[in-house]
């Protein structure tokens, strides 16, 4: 187990290093001079040159990479060109929106999807199964930003139950904050729930087809007990995989939704930073997201190993 863990961690670390090189290299070719952007349309050349010098844009590439990469190890992600504040602070501020949003939608989609998937599996082939899977099929096909638009106009503009967008900040209190995240979370959660429900259903069906379940049923165990105790537990592996993948996806996938609801989250931060050529911010956020994906994958693998010891050796 320790050897397996060590290997996974090592691979994760190597992935991060290579990723940091890729990110840095790719973003270096982006056209656009951050200094010019900071000063604006009527900037004078001297002021521009002064600023470029101050921002350290004249240093050689390798130096800048090493500076940046070594800084990250100790938590220093550099300073934003556009906001002139430390990137790590910006990320912290924005993560306070994105993280709860991703968590909320993850919870929502799980709460919706698991019961629906299990229910459908237990009614295989019956109308309830057909209808719920039909709905799930449509849910998978709905672009979340379109769904978000419909939600805004229904609940915010028409019924005025929740704000149409924006985020009051957690200082304003827990409820106003959560209220602002409800619609975006629903918009994000629905298509994910549809996928998850389908996975849950097929995983359950697969398990229900196994011999030991048949045996349990044959021994006269009640259907409910078989379903919830034996089948679900074993069906959880693929479900957990998808959940793990989905969390990383949600964190990054908030870009569009945060733009629809103009939430000041990581997605908006990085989207704005890309258009404003605030490369140091883009690099920081992307690295953080990559790191979280890598971490989630390791956790999922460890989870596997715990749930199913056979997998340890197979890797």
């Amino acid at each position: 187990m320790t050897a397996y863990l060590a290997k996974r961690l090592l691979i994760g670390l190597a992935t991060l290093v290579v990723a940091s090189m890729v990110v840095f290299a790719v973003l270096e070719v982006v056209p656009g001079d951050p200094a010019l952007i900071m000063l604006g349309m009527n900037a004078e050349p001297e002021a521009l040159a002064t600023l470029r010098e101050q921002m350290g844009l004249n240093q050689p590439l390798l130096m800048r990479y090493l500076d940046w990469a070594s800084g990250m190890i100790v938590g220093d992600f550099g300073r934003s060109y556009t906001y002139s504040s430390p990137v790590i602070e910006l990320i912290g501020e924005r993560a306070a929106v994105s993280l709860p949003l991703a968590l909320l939608s993850l919870v929502l989609s799980t709460v919706i999807a698991l019961p629906v998937g299990i229910f459908a599996a237990s009614r295989r082939g019956r109308p309830a199964d057909t209808i719920s899977m039909g709905v799930a099929q449509v849910g998978v096909a709905i672009p979340n930003f379109w769904f978000a638009l419909l939600l805004i106009y229904l609940f915010a503009v028409w019924l005025r139950l929740v704000p149409a967008g924006g985020f009051p900040g957690w200082n304003a209190g827990l409820w106003p904050g959560v209220k602002a995240l409800i619609l975006p979370a629903i918009a994000l959660a629905l298509p994910q729930a549809a996928i998850l429900a389908r996975v849950t259903r097929s995983a359950m069906l697969e398990v229900l087809g196994e011999d030991y379940i048949r045996t349990a049923r044959a021994k006269g165990m009640p259907r409910r007990v078989v379903l919830w105790h034996h089948a679900l537990r074993n069906a959880l592996i693929p479900v957990l995989t998808i959940l793990g993948l989905q969390f990383a996806f949600l964190l990054a996938g908030t870009i569009i939704i945060e733009n629809v609801f103009y939430l000041p989250g990581l997605g908006r931060l990085v989207f704005q930073a890309i258009t404003q050529r605030d490369l140091i911010v883009v690099e920081g956020v992307v690295m953080l997201l990559v790191a979280s994906v890598v971490l989630v994958n390791i956790l999922v693998d460890i989870g596997y190993a715990i749930v199913d010891p056979r997998l340890r050796t197979r890797q």
Binding site: V29, P31, A248, A252, I274, V286, L289, V293
Partner: peptide
């Protein structure tokens, strides 16, 4: 490649 959030990277590529 999988470690890069696909949508984010696609946005980066088109923006660049």
């Amino acid at each position: 490649v999988f470690a890069f959030p696909a949508l984010l990277s696609a946005i980066m590529i088109t923006a660049i």
